[in-house]
Computed example of a mutant assay.
Amino acid sequence: MTTTHSAAATSGSATVHPVLTLASVTIAYPVALDRIVTVIEGYDLALEVGGFHCLAGRSGSGKTSVLRVAAGLATPTVGSVAWAGERIADLPEHVLADRRNTFLGYLDQGGELLPGLTALENVLLPAVPTRTVKRMTPRAVELLEHVGVDHRMQHTPDRLSGGERQRVALARALLMEPAVVVADEPTASLDRESADTVIALLAGLVDHGVAVLVAAHDPQLIAAAASVTRLD
């Protein structure tokens, strides 16, 4: 496991509180009654406001596992995760779910959408718990325009291509203006032009202070990141 560049930040002599911290994270899975496979061991990451970090590596190297732990969707075997300095293991489940909905935007590799809902309705899902659907609708439309699928906003997922579903899912991840975006292979299902649009969008988020953590095989997405961890 190698890391290039730095993912931590300082301001003058004072340390800036990382917006996302993984401390000594180890992830292991039982594969038989007497066998455990460790996919990540002792991983550290301190991602600052406006940081752009990429996990690169072969399939099965643990990239998705790290992202799920960072997003609070899985618990590390050892180690801790903190959002803006607060250990998420200390939060009650309902508080964690509420924080995740607003603090962090998560995009899984499949770009999973709810069947039966339109693209626009899927993007608006994070606004439902906060009862802000009406207020957030113009932003949802704008995000669909940014990712180039506004002409498909009234289509259900079964009428969208894989790449279109991925871009709708990215718009959904950005709806609540999260402090952190965690994205698993966000360009994997896209043609080069669409992938470059997504990369530019992520870079624009970074310029506005959003922290971005991605897993990627795409060399151009990897090159866009300010720091890279290569998992072997």
Rank of each mutant, 00 (worst) to 15 (best):
A8L: 05
A9C: 14
A14D: 14
A14R: 08
T15C: 02
V16Y: 00
H17G: 13
V19F: 05
A23M: 01
D34K: 12
R35Q: 15
V39H: 04
V39M: 04
I40K: 00
E41C: 05
D44I: 00
L45S: 03
E48K: 03
G51E: 02
H53V: 06
T64R: 00
T77W: 11
V81W: 05
G85C: 05
G85L: 01
R87V: 08
R87L: 09
P92V: 02
H94T: 13
V95N: 01
A97L: 10
F103W: 03
F103L: 09
G116S: 10
G116Q: 06
L117R: 08
T118Y: 13
L120G: 05
E121A: 13
R131G: 02
V133W: 10
K134E: 15
R135N: 00
T137R: 14
A140T: 11
L144W: 13
Q154S: 14
H155R: 05
H155F: 14
G163W: 11
R165G: 01
R172C: 08
M176P: 04
P178N: 10
V181L: 11
V182Y: 04
P186I: 12
R192W: 03
V198G: 04
V198S: 04
L202R: 00
D207R: 15
H208A: 14
V210E: 07
Q220W: 02
A226F: 04
S227H: 05
V228M: 02
D232W: 06
